[in-house]
């Protein structure tokens, strides 16, 4: 049996013990939104969050990261993984982490990402409140969340804790868990199933159908139309749990000898993203118009990666829709409109 129950009254003590023993990152309030951040007091953990501003991938792939530190021509790696419990991740973000795990592992392995990923214990939690732009119930339905070590679901009287790996099992030591009953397991399943059709937004077609149709619209004028109000601000990229592009630059310290090679998140909606140097000092931008950049993101989310990932590279979190000040980034509007054309 790998399902356990902990009473509501014992949960705070469990969190307290875990925080005392391990570095724990979980959802926390920031003004009227939520962010993943280090949990230092049990009451800071907000499992009732709807969605966080940035996805939890930032734990393995920080927005800014030193890759190497150099001294003259000599460089040394800065990979310093830290054992971490990433607690309270919603299932859609677990799906996204599984995608970035795959993407950072294939071809050139990204050791910075993988080192931190490997020493992290990833624990999910059920969605207690649904974000106002979420559509996770209707996207990539065939893709199951995996790669996590455990999952908590709030049920009557407490929490069901499902353990999938040894790392997940280790956490049992911090609290008073008892074996869960069949009833409790069924209740948890129902809790998790029931949110699936409560999303405020819905995609009406199957992902394979979408993938083909959207691809066939490559030369359509709709892209410029969709992107008319676009600021090329990249917010839709930067908040996305499945986006993984970055830019690398060298920076010297004032002494002009030491410095670091740093990577920073980048995004295909930004004008300079696809600008490159050519021989002879000239420049070329292969996605010069707003429409072409806008199209590229939608293509990446719906079509280009589906074969590789076994489903769309979008998990329906709704972050892009809400972070777009012009409110034009919502994949649901774009996809449903294209499918009806």
């Amino acid at each position: 049996m790998n399902a356990f129950f902990i009473k509501e009254a014992d949960f705070t003590q469990f969190l307290g013990n875990m925080i005392g023993a391990r570095k724990v990152i979980g959802p926390k309030a920031r003004k009227n939104r939520f962010v993943f951040d280090q949990i230092r007091k049990p009451e800071d953990l907000r499992l009732d969050y709807d969605v966080t501003i940035l996805p939890p991938k930032k734990v393995f792939f920080p927005p800014r990261q030193e890759l190497i530190r150099f001294h003259g021509q000599k460089g040394s790696s800065c990979i310093q993984p830290e054992s971490t419990v990433l607690f309270g991740v919603h299932f859609y973000d677990i799906k996204a982490i599984d995608m970035t795990d795959h993407l950072f592992r294939e071809n050139n392995m990204d050791f910075n990402y993988l080192a931190q990923r490997e020493c992290t214990t990833l624990i999910g939690s059920n969605v207690q409140n649904i974000f106002k732009r979420a559509f996770f119930g209707s996207v990539g339905k065939g893709v199951a969340p995996k790669g996590h070590d455990g999952f908590t679901t709030k049920i009557s009287g407490g929490y069901l804790y499902e353990v999938y790996t040894a790392k997940g099992k280790d956490l049992l030591a911090y609290g008073t868990f008892i074996e869960a009953t069949e009833e409790q397991i069924n209740e948890a399943r129902e809790v998790n199933d029931s949110v699936m059709d409560k999303c405020p937004e819905k995609i009406n077609h199957d992902s394979l159908e979408i993938s083909e149709k959207v691809r066939s619209k490559f030369n359509s004028p709709v892209w410029e139309e969709f992107a008319h109000d676009c600021f090329s601000c990249g917010s839709c990229n930067l908040v996305c749990p499945t986006c993984y592009c970055f830019d690398v630059q060298d920076n010297w310290n004032v002494d002009q000898v030491t410095g670091s090679r740093d990577r920073t998140w980048d995004g295909c909606l930004l004008e300079d993203f696809s600008s490159c140097s050519l021989t002879g000092g000239s420049k070329e931008n292969f996605r010069e118009t707003r429409g072409s950049r806008y199209r590229h993101r939608i293509m990446r989310k719906t079509s280009y990666l589906t074969a590789k990932l076994g489903g769309p590279a979008c998990v329906g979190c709704g972050r892009c829709s809400s972070s777009c000040t012009a409110d034009i980034a919502d994949p649901v509007n774009v996809i449903n409109r294209l499918m009806e054309e």
Partner: peptide, 28 residues
């Protein structure tokens, strides 16, 4: 840099002014 301030707000996970009922010029 030729990207707007929105990028830097996202990188530091600042709550958007528009989410706070305010306005901002960061997008341009």
């Amino acid at each position: 840099p030729n990207h707007p301030v929105c990028v830097e707000c996202k990188l530091r996970e600042t709550v958007c002014r528009y989410d706070q009922g305010d306005h901002c010029l960061g997008m341009v």
